[in-house]
Design a protein around this nucleic acid. Structure first.
Lengths: 122, 122
DNA sequence: CAGAATCCTGTAGGATACTG
DNA sequence: CAGTATCCTACAGGATTCTG
């Protein structure tokens, strides 16, 4: 059992990973398949993605649903416990939006995941 | 100029460092001298402390006040910009307090820094 | 498509000693 | 007391390949 010098460390232990907040911010908007997450995070490697997902799963923050079919289909989504992080994630996202330097003259450069939702890739 | 795949990355860039949230959580309660911070974070090394402090300073989140005296005295405190992170830090701390496993049968093991200094009301 | 298994490297970050 | 300056190592994390 871990000992913390300050309670906030308990939160950091769960969402402190390099990509965890980003992953959670995506999953708070919608459940996602592995490939979707990969496309939403061009910077992440295969290895890191699964690794971070496993840790989040082990911490009970997200859940993994496997569909028994070929080709395989796996979906990740927040658990109830994960939703308890909503306030944190919301404030983080809000701050990011407010304080981001405007690198996007128009929105064209921003990934618009919603647009590709429901897409079937063959 | 950095390009983000998702706005929240802007927030992570500022508070994503290993110790930054902890430091900020301390500074949100009161301005602190270097030695105080060191004692509040027994796990951090001299090097990491100054490094993280410098980065926070460079990002305009905290400010460093040097008193010209011997022995030296330096104080760190949040800037106005830094206070814009209050909501994030508050929700992080709150979550930590709620979800920490109760490792403290009584409070005796928890550091109680408040006792040693006046509060910094903003 | 999801992800496990390898191999490999950079660097985050620790320990220690020193200075104004 | 606050802060450099070194040295050094573990491991986070990347690239690539393979499999059901």
């Amino acid at each position: 059992m871990k000992k913390y010098n300050i309670p906030v460390e308990a939160a950091l232990e769960v969402i402190g990973g390099k990509w965890k907040v980003v992953i959670l911010c995506h999953l708070i908007k919608a459940k996602r398949r592995t490939g979707e997450l990969k496309r939403l995070m061009p910077g992440i490697t295969q290895k890191m993605l699964t690794q971070q997902l496993r840790e989040l799963e082990d911490d009970g923050v997200i859940e993994r649903k496997v569909y028994n079919q070929v080709p395989p289909k796996v979906e990740y989504f927040l658990t109830d416990y994960g939703w308890s992080l909503k306030e944190i994630l919301d404030s983080l996202c809000a701050w990011g939006e407010q304080h981001i330097e405007r690198v996007y003259p128009d929105k064209s450069e921003v990934l618009m995941p919603e647009a590709e939702e429901e897409l079937h890739i063959h």
